[in-house]
């Protein structure tokens, strides 16, 4: 297992399309619910324990070798918003392209053939981690971190928030992020015996509802 490969995969500059998505932050900013570092932290914490936990468990399960189609269906069931399902598939497809160029492997090629329109991004993330020689814990950490780093970066652009404050938010969330990743891996290990029902299904009503409203805006900076 290579620690450096984890840095490559988790790098915010990894060219997989994430920069165009705010993880719901743009809608929350417009609704006046994110106004600065404190509310950004609260937003990120809520996202981490809901969408982040689910994404981390899906990624860990994929890294452990669970059937991608089953995981993709489980992701669908845990993503009621069609706007978020579409965004997750689009990002999954972009990540798969980047991962195949970075860590060529027959496994990733097979996934590209199986999901021509893209699989949910966390599932692809787990498969990419596997192709990079990483384990379920790495995949879970990556997914959990992305669930908060995306909104933090977007908020820097949307509110001209001090980037040091935004980075401080991420650092303060680190211990919780570790716990989320651990519990995601624990759930993912149960998938082999219990099926995908063992995966967490934590949901955030406002993220889902606001994603639909955001998708209908005529003018926006971020795709989701």
């Amino acid at each position: 297992m290579s620690r450096a490969a984890l840095l490559v995969l988790a790098d915010g500059r990894f060219p997989a399309g994430g920069h165009a998505h705010s993880g719901g932050a743009e809608a929350a900013v417009k609704a006046g619910r994110i106004t600065g570092a404190a509310s950004l932290e609260d937003f990120c914490r809520g996202r981490l324990h809901t969408a982040g936990l689910v994404a981390a468990a899906l990624a860990a399960a994929a890294a452990l070798g669970a059937d991608p189609a089953g995981l993709d269906a489980a992701a669908d069931a845990r993503t009621p918003s069609p706007a978020l399902r579409a965004a997750a598939r689009r990002l999954g497809r972009q990540l798969l392209r980047a991962a195949r160029a970075t860590w060529p492997s027959p496994g990733l090629d097979a996934v590209a053939r199986q999901f021509p329109k893209g699989a949910h991004q966390p599932v692809v993330l787990g498969l990419a981690a596997r192709a990079a020689g990483l384990g379920p814990g790495d995949a879970a950490h990556c997914a959990a971190y992305e669930s908060v780093s995306g909104p933090a970066t977007a908020t820097v652009r949307l509110l001209s928030l001090d980037p040091f404050d935004a980075t401080g938010v991420l650092a303060r969330l680190a211990p919780e992020l570790d716990r989320v990743a651990d519990s995601a891996v624990e759930a993912a290990r149960r998938v082999a015996d219990e099926g995908t029902d063992a995966l967490p299904a934590a949901s955030a009503p406002l993220l889902e509802v606001m994603a639909e409203a955001h998708a209908a805006w005529p003018v926006r900076l971020f795709a989701s």
């Binding site: 929350a28 509310s39 919780e176 406002l206």
Partner: peptide, 9 residues
């Protein structure tokens, strides 16, 4: 879990 009453949830 944290953030349940925050802007995301």
């Amino acid at each position: 879990p944290g953030g349940w009453d925050g802007p995301a949830v």
